[in-house]
Computed example of a mutant assay.
Amino acid sequence: MKKKLVILITAASLLLSACNDGKVKVDPAESTKPSSAQTEVTPVKVEKPKFTKDTYPKLDGSTATIPLSEAAASDILGISKEDSQKFIKHNTTHNAYVNLINKKVDIIFVTEPSEEELKLAKDAKVELEVIPVVNEGFVFLVNTKNPINSLTIKQIQDIYQGKIKNWKEVGGTDSEIIPYQREANSGSQTGMEKTVMKGLKMVDAPKTIVTGMEGLIESIAKYDNSERALGYSYFYYAKTMYNKDTIKFIGVDGIVPDNSTISSGKYPFTTSYYAVLRKSEPKDSSSRKLLDWMLSEDGQKLAEKTGYVPLKVR
């Protein structure tokens, strides 16, 4: 039996359930905090759903999960990669959550919900299920000119609280740190706030907020003063979708993110990409059939083939 991690968002409270032999309730105050532990599944064989383009689930998602959605559609529908790229449309993380809450789509592939998105669901009296589909790493990036190869968790937190402002304070050159941020409710910004800062207030940074994942990477990759820059993203996107030869991943507490350290859970900022549905979605709906297949042995193999880190196998 597959093990699913499910977050149920209700108007009254947030309950985190781990579905296996029973259900385990977690303090609602802890339910929105991501865990660095790897999600595990027992791989099972699930029959590939039989969809046409007309019966395929209405879906949406983040930029970084576009290849995952395209690969699934290509495999299930038996269409080419080019056709799947035309068929699949993602509107970025926040817009995907809004579309799901407003019942314009039935399933989305995203990072975890922000506090504003949780409130939108609560206000709309929509109950959500948030289920990991692949593992992922939240990563930090610098320009290749920067001699720094690793920072501690506390150093990162101090930089983004404005307590550390010069690279020499963390073993680098005597130069100002330019700590880039993403816009509110972007998947990267929510990940930073929840996975890294964990309630610590980030410094107000109107001049260093960058719109779009590619915009942040470009700010670090360019040559003009970029050796002073620090930024963050998700491992898959920065490694596979928007790789630049002038940026490098830095370690956290000495552990550099890669498929191995993320898969094993050794990398400190390990997280997931999630499938999110409305809890009211029928058990035999096309969305649940798609999700069941993506969590199956074949679905996880496809995710790995596409470059994602599959859920840890028990």
Rank of each mutant, 00 (worst) to 15 (best):
L59I: 07
A124L: 06
Q85R: 05
I131N: 12
A64C: 06
Y56K: 01
P147M: 13
N95T: 05
K145H: 11
L77R: 01
Y180F: 15
Q161E: 02
E82K: 06
I148E: 06
F140G: 07
D75T: 14
T55W: 11
F140P: 09
E127A: 14
I88F: 13
E112T: 12
I88C: 14
V142A: 05
Q181L: 14
D174H: 01
P57Y: 00
I159Q: 05
G162M: 13
P179L: 05
I66H: 03
G78R: 00
D174Q: 02
Q161T: 03
S69A: 14
T144P: 08
I79S: 05
K86A: 10
Y56E: 12
H94R: 04
L128S: 12
Y97F: 15
I156N: 03
F87P: 02
H94S: 13
F138A: 06
N149L: 06
T173F: 13
K104G: 07
A124I: 09
W167K: 00
A96E: 08
T55Q: 03
L120N: 13
V130K: 10
G61W: 05
N149R: 11
T52N: 02
N91H: 14
A96Q: 07
K81I: 05
Y180H: 13
K86R: 03
V98W: 06
E117N: 07
I178D: 02
I88K: 01
F109V: 10
S175P: 01
E169A: 01
T93N: 13
G78W: 00
D123L: 11
S114D: 05
N166Q: 12
Y56T: 06
G162R: 13
K163T: 09
K86F: 08
E127H: 14
E136M: 06
L77K: 03
V105Y: 01
S80T: 15
I107E: 02
N146W: 10
F138G: 06
V170S: 00
Y180I: 11
E129Y: 09
K86C: 01
L141K: 10
E82M: 09
V105H: 00
T92P: 08
S80E: 04
T152V: 05
N149Q: 14
A72H: 00
K145M: 08
E70P: 08
K168N: 09
S150K: 13
I107A: 01
F51A: 09
S84K: 00
L118M: 12
A96G: 08
K50G: 02
E70I: 12
K103I: 12
S150L: 08
I76K: 03
N149G: 04
H94M: 04
K165Q: 04
A73I: 08
P179N: 04
T93Q: 11
P49Y: 11
H90S: 15
L118Y: 07
D158S: 15
H90G: 15
G172P: 02
T65W: 03
K104L: 12
L141G: 07
D83F: 13
V133S: 05
G172S: 00
K145I: 08
K81V: 08
L120C: 09
G162L: 14
K58Y: 10
Y180A: 14
I76C: 10
N95G: 08
Q157M: 12
E117Q: 07
A124F: 14
G171E: 11
H94K: 02
T55C: 14
F51W: 04
V130T: 15
Q155V: 01
Y56H: 02
L59C: 09
K122G: 10
E176N: 06
K122I: 15
